[in-house]
Design a protein around this nucleic acid. Structure first.
Lengths: 225, 225
DNA sequence: TCGCATTTGTAACATATGATACAAAATAGC
DNA sequence: GCTATTTTGTATCATATGTTACAAATGCGA
């Protein structure tokens, strides 16, 4: 059995299939593997994305050129992982970044037609694929919802109200204030100050990791502008 | 031909198929339609989403209950449109909002299994479906990228650098400062002040709708922290 | 062309947050 | 139980942005 089928079977897209299953599915369909040397370009930003790519050996990175020509690394992608799940369909099916090999690496390329064939002939792969992009959508939606709270007090109100279990008025943080501040994307003293002010205003009582909700109504009003 | 197949053929998911095609695809598969009266609940927030829903007649709204019990309308969804494309797969396959009929409406419900069957037997629907969720992912990614610029100057730098056509150093805004400020989510005087300061710093020249880039390098540095 | 409405520039002040610093309190390791 | 480290509370100052107000510049319709 080719080693890259084993590698594929370890990706989230082909999970649940054996290397033999995958070989059977792809049998007679066009796909190719290619070795890249260190720093070789696998794909170029803005190119139309016709194929699904898998890193089956080595690792690659996403890199972009900013407006002034400077290079910025975006992400490292080690084998075994799919590369273009989100770019191959949709209105703007172009690579958003350059893809460059970090080390000698093997990329397996599956044309879009073949991917569609596979999705139509393996329920497991279809479900995996749909789950992968749907999870990503849900992740991004949550992130945007979270980013929509502008002030630290709004973030705090949203956080403690969503942590609250069944009208239990006291919650205990499972992370330090430093970690929470980091999660909120604010500085630690600013978080502590916001908590102190909210206590001053009678919304809650905060002592170290224990927060008691005193005025749920007012807390909530912070969230609806 | 049932009217709801005609309605389905007008949705982005079934676009490209005729009502007859769709009827053929669904023939013998379980699905159901149901009428809802005004203000009747179609689905409840947090319920697990097992089915794909289509509004084939009337209109529904997404509504959520905030932490204090207040009701908030999120979105109106008129026929003909799919409802749950993004919630039916993925880790958290639950409705994020309540779905409530605005008026007497008809909802067509396709169980997930049947949806998968359809995706595997119609290449058109599969591609439509993948395009729909991929476009949404791309849209959300762009939105997050935009939100990641924190200061007004960063937003301005990003905006004018991306508007710049082929090293043309002058760009002319196609909207008023008020509209641009609104697009950035900031106030108009703050935008004007930021522009004035950037001019002071020698980055650009701004007079009314005409902006001339004077120091592309420094503008760009604003974007890479 | 005149007069009014819109757009733009700018100023003064208020607020939210970041940066930095330091001490008190809690915790962990020995 | 003692000490060193981490965590928390707080203060001061700087900066970015919002809020409000008003005047100058522009554009538009009669």
């Amino acid at each position: 059995m080719e080693l890259f089928f084993v590698s594929l079977s370890e990706t989230n897209i082909f999970r649940g299939l054996t290397a033999e299953n995958i070989a059977g599915l792809m049998d007679g369909r066009p796909f190719r593997t290619r070795e890249y040397v260190r720093d070789e370009y696998v794909a170029y930003s803005h190119d139309v994305c016709h194929d699904m790519l898998f890193v089956v050996k080595g690792s690659v990175r996403g890199e972009m050129t900013d407006f002034s020509g400077k290079r910025l690394k975006i992400e490292d992608i080690p084998a075994p992982r799919p590369l273009a799940a989100a770019f191959i369909f949709g209105k703007e099916n172009r690579y958003p970044v350059d893809i460059i090999a970090n080390e000698p690496s093997t990329i397996l390329t599956i044309p879009r037609d073949v991917l569609i064939y596979i999705l139509q002939h393996s329920q497991v792969v279809l479900q995996n694929y749909l789950n992968a992009i749907s999870s990503r959508t849900q992740f991004l939606s949550n992130k945007i919802r979270f980013l929509s709270f502008k002030t630290i007090k709004e973030k705090i109100a949203n956080y403690i109200l969503s942590q609250m279990k069944s009208n239990q008025m006291t919650i205990v943080l499972d992370q330090t204030q430093t970690e929470l501040a980091d999660f909120f994307g604010v500085t630690r003293p600013s978080l502590a100050r916001a908590l102190a002010e909210m206590q001053e205003e009678g919304l809650l009582r905060a002592e170290r990791r224990e927060i008691t909700i005193l005025d749920k109504e007012k807390l909530n009003n912070l969230l609806n502008k």
